[in-house]
Amino acid sequence: MSRSALEVADIFRSHGPAWRKAHAGHVSLDQLKVMSAIERCRTAALGGHVARCADCAYTTIAYNSCRNRHCPKCQGAAAKEWLADREADLLPVPYYHVVFTLPVAIADIAYQNKAALYDLLFKVSAETMLTIAADPKHLGARIGITSVLHSWGSALTHHPHVHMIVPGGGIAPDGQRWVSCRPGFFLSVRVLSRLFRRLFLEKLVAAHQAGRLSFFGDHAYLAEAQSFAAYLAPLRKAEWVVYAKRPFGGPQAVLAYLSRYTHRVAIANSRLIACDQQGVTFKWKDYRVEGRNRYKRMTLATDEFIRRFLIHVLPKGLHRIRHYGLFAKGACAANIARARELLAAATPEAEPSTAAIDPGKPTCPCCGGHMIIIEVFEAGCTPRHRPTAPTNRFRIDTS
């Protein structure tokens, strides 16, 4: 895939210095680090190596990646590596996609309490799924969940929600059989929504009473208990959005879906159209509209584009991909082996994944020959060897 004509890195390099100066004192250290990493990614500032084809002598320079989890260029490769590890864990059953979304009023609180509220969103949505699935009136089984946090809408607005990928069934409480869900139906979204609402509000109030929430600006009054209770009162009767999509077509469809969601960042370079005097123009999807008309263009002032991108920088140490139930770390391998046994499915043979990239064996883009590293250069240094002209550059982007 050819390099995008415009990248987030280009916008940061050209407008970042002025933006940082204008907003000095109002930008977090984590946000500054993300900007710096994206600006330096795959440039001489991070160093790299020179590789030459053993057959045709084609020579190319590869600069090091920043590996920041918010970088549009780095996350495509990270997703493929992650998928290669997950491929053997897939079960031969239908998989479902369930989305838990926070109401706008709660999202406003989450904006000022990202670490606490994002963690709560993960835990409460998982508890909701595990509780309803374990109920004999619904499924009566222990299920496995892979959850992915997204904090953005298509227009880069703050819209925290969790995407879940769930096998269509689970292991019975006695561990002796696999319990499949009804064809085309996993769990009632209405029941999930009600329990999600109740559990989240209970734990949110507990967090407030424990003094673990902070409020600023227009929300400063919520620090007072009675005001907070009054703020939450309408939410106890409102409908909270829990959405379940149709089951996937098969294991490969699950992998294809995961590759688009697990390591996605707020906006991909491929969605950028232009950066000029009018601002930054990009493609976005209006989910309120059906059909082809939902795909639109939006132009934001450059300062506003940078601000919106940076509000999705995650708190340090917060994991955006988590596993629950049968897939919880530690017992995952044993649970999957037991599920395969109950499903009478053979364990996949250890074969090289077609989704994985083997960085140790790059091939020549000209003749397919083996590329050999002939020089490694440090950050900020210029390589002694020059690339073969014209240089073909490749990038892996997130969607």
Rank of each mutant, 00 (worst) to 15 (best):
F305I: 14
A334M: 13
V98P: 00
A116S: 02
S399C: 14
L255G: 06
R142C: 05
A88C: 11
W152H: 04
F216T: 13
Y95H: 08
G330D: 15
F186L: 07
Q75L: 05
A24Q: 11
H161R: 12
P247A: 00
G140M: 10
L83E: 08
R142L: 08
F377E: 06
A210Y: 02
T363R: 11
I396H: 04
A225K: 11
D30K: 03
D303H: 07
G169A: 08
R307T: 04
F122A: 00
K123N: 14
L300E: 03
K123Q: 15
V8C: 03
T363W: 07
G153H: 05
T388P: 07
I38N: 03
L272V: 13
P362A: 09
L300R: 03
A238S: 11
N68E: 11
V8I: 13
L258Y: 09
A22Q: 10
A328W: 06
M129L: 14
G250W: 00
H15W: 00
R320H: 15
A110L: 04
V265Y: 09
P234E: 11
I321W: 09
A62I: 06
M1P: 11
D218M: 10
T382I: 12
W152A: 06
H263Q: 14
A77C: 09
R212T: 02
Q252F: 06
G360F: 10
G279N: 08
V50T: 09
T354S: 14
A207K: 13
V162S: 05
E87C: 13
R13I: 12
G153D: 10
V242M: 07
A210S: 15
P94A: 06
V93T: 10
G279Q: 01
K285S: 13
V242A: 02
A339Q: 02
A331D: 04
P94E: 14
H15N: 12
L258C: 14
L204C: 13
F305T: 00
